[in-house]
Write a protein that binds this DNA or RNA. Structure first.
Length: 446
RNA sequence: GACCCUAUCGUCUAGCGGUUAGGACACCGCCCUUUCACGGCGGCGGCCGGGGUUCGAAUCCCCGUAGGGUCGCCA
């Protein structure tokens, strides 16, 4: 039975690379019919908090990554699922203590300066990585001087290398899938496993995600935190899909795949060995693809949230009006965060019109025509898109101008922008009163 | 300083000894369209460099170079 784990340290945010690591673990578990374990490496008490753990749980859930074993909530003392708990390292002190003593009693570790150090081999360690292949790790010059390393600090706290290995051993982890930044240290981990007299798990080191300029992605970089995508109004399906395409490929030229399709095809052997740069433009494109096929109800709910985040409470408007307004935006934007700028004109009575732009469209020649259109609109009994379109076209015809001559100024007057939803539909939604008022205002200003 | 990994269009990638080096994003045209977006058509653009091996290398080997990672009483 394949058992994989994602073992994040609660630092207050979930790195996009960490999310990808979790995803690949999950994909492999689901592909193999194995088990996904979530373990919280909260040994650094000073830096950890329940909120920080919550960020991780929330991020994983958002992406659709579930775990068969691990915490149910962010509370270390709370309930968990699985027979290999606790799943918080802060609750596993006893195990570490036992393991340390086992090594000490066999002289595989020793005390020095109050710390406990592991007797590391001086021989090159051969690793057989599922992604990278066979790697022979030799000692660096610094290590050659003193190959042993600390496993328990002088303050009594065991270090990462040690607890990580002990937990993987005790939890029966069969495959360690993690970032390539751990490759060099894997030699230590393998030796630790051997010291405990067991076969190390299989390792798979996946490439890292870099910034678009090729530099390392650190906390500060935009897009480094998964929460960014949550807040910016990305769809989790799109983010997951995109992450799958970084370092892995279905090899059949398909870009848009559902998770179940990826689960079916995913395997570690096809994971690339080189790092990948994060391409926000491609993610946005994918997001647009998913956005376009979103059911109207979901689109509506997310759109309302996007407006709320931007400080516009759409609830102050009649529900039917909001619905109609947002419907004209369906399939037009790639991100929910674009919506407030794209369709904000629906939800304000004070449209700020750029005088310069206004002068361009509302020329002395054109103003009488727009005035005429305005008066025709005023006479309409039915303020519907079809009637509006017919009206505009007939006015244009009688004036001997192309539709665009009237379309552009009308759009500008009604929305303040040169691009937006379908003109006739947005006018219909806005309603006669607003449209006439906006047309009058533009006519007066220009 | 040492050790490890990596190297195909700007980016993500297909390719695993014989291909006009394919696709996607981005970009640029044209078409569609009242705007924008979508869609359609087309274009731009790549095997890091140098040696080998081979009848034949993007594919295999070596050396450079470049990028990334690691060498902590951080995780």
């Amino acid at each position: 039975m394949v058992r994989v784990r994602f073992a994040p340290s609660p630092t207050g945010y979930l790195h996009i690379g960490g999310a990808r690591t979790a995803l690949f673990n999950w994909l492999y578990a689901r592909h193999c019919g194995g088990r996904m374990i979530l373990r919280i490496e909260d040994t650094d008490a000073a830096r950890n908090s329940q909120e920080a753990i919550e960020v991780i749980l929330q991020g994983l859930r958002w992406l659709g990554i579930d775990w068969d074993e691990g915490p149910v909530s962010a509370d270390p003392a709370g309930a968990s699922r699985g027979d290999f708990g606790p799943y918080f390292q802060s609750q596993r002190r006893g195990n570490y203590q036992e393991r340390v003593e086992a090594l000490l009693s066999r002289d595989l570790a020793y005390e020095k300066d109050g710390a406990i150090r592991f007797r590391m081999t001086r021989e090159p360690v051969v690793m057989d990585d599922l992604v990278v292949g066979q790697v022979t790790r030799e000692l660096t010059d610094r290590e050659a001087e003193d190959p042993d390393f600390v496993i328990v600090r002088s303050d009594g706290h065991p270090v990462f290398h040690f607890v990580n290995v002990v937990d993987d051993l005790d939890m029966g982890i069969t495959h360690v899938i993690r970032g390539e930044d751990h490759l060099s240290n894997t030699a230590k981990h393998i030796q630790l496993f051997k010291a405990f007299g067991v076969q190390p798990p299989r390792y798979a080191h996946i490439p890292l995600i870099l910034n678009s300029d090729g530099s390392k992605m650190s906390k500060r970089d935009t897009g480094a935190s998964l929460s960014t995508y949550l807040e910016e109004g990305f769809l989790p399906e799109a983010v997951t899909n995109y992450l799958c395409l970084l370092g892995w490929s279905p090899k059949d030229d398909r870009e848009k795949l559902s998770v179940s399709e990826v689960v079916e095809r995913f395997d570690l052997a096809q994971v690339l060995r080189h790092n990948a740069r994060f391409d926000m433009a491609k993610l946005q494109w994918l997001n647009g693809e998913y956005l376009r096929e979103l059911p109207a109800e979901k689109f509506f709910a997310e759109a309302v949230r996007a407006f709320a985040r931007a400080g516009t409470d759409t609830n102050q408007w009649p529900l039917e009006y909001v619905r109609a307004a947002l419907t004209t935006c369906l399939g037009k934007v790639k991100l929910f965060s674009e919506l407030p700028a794209y369709a904000g004109f629906y939800f304000t009575e004070e449209l700020s019109l750029d005088p310069a732009a206004l002068r361009g469209d509302f020329t002395p020649d054109n103003k009488p025509r727009i005035q005429q259109l305005r008066d025709q609109f005023a006479r309409l009994a039915e303020f519907k898109a079809e009637a509006l379109e017919a009206t505009l076209k007939s006015v244009a015809k009688s004036c001997g101008v192309k539709n665009g001559v009237l379309v552009h100024p009308t759009r500008l007057a009604c929305t303040g922008a040169t691009a937006g939803p379908s003109l006739y539909h947005l006018i219909e939604v806005l309603g006669k009163d607003r449209v006439l008022r906006r047309l009058d205002a533009a006519l007066a200003t220009a």
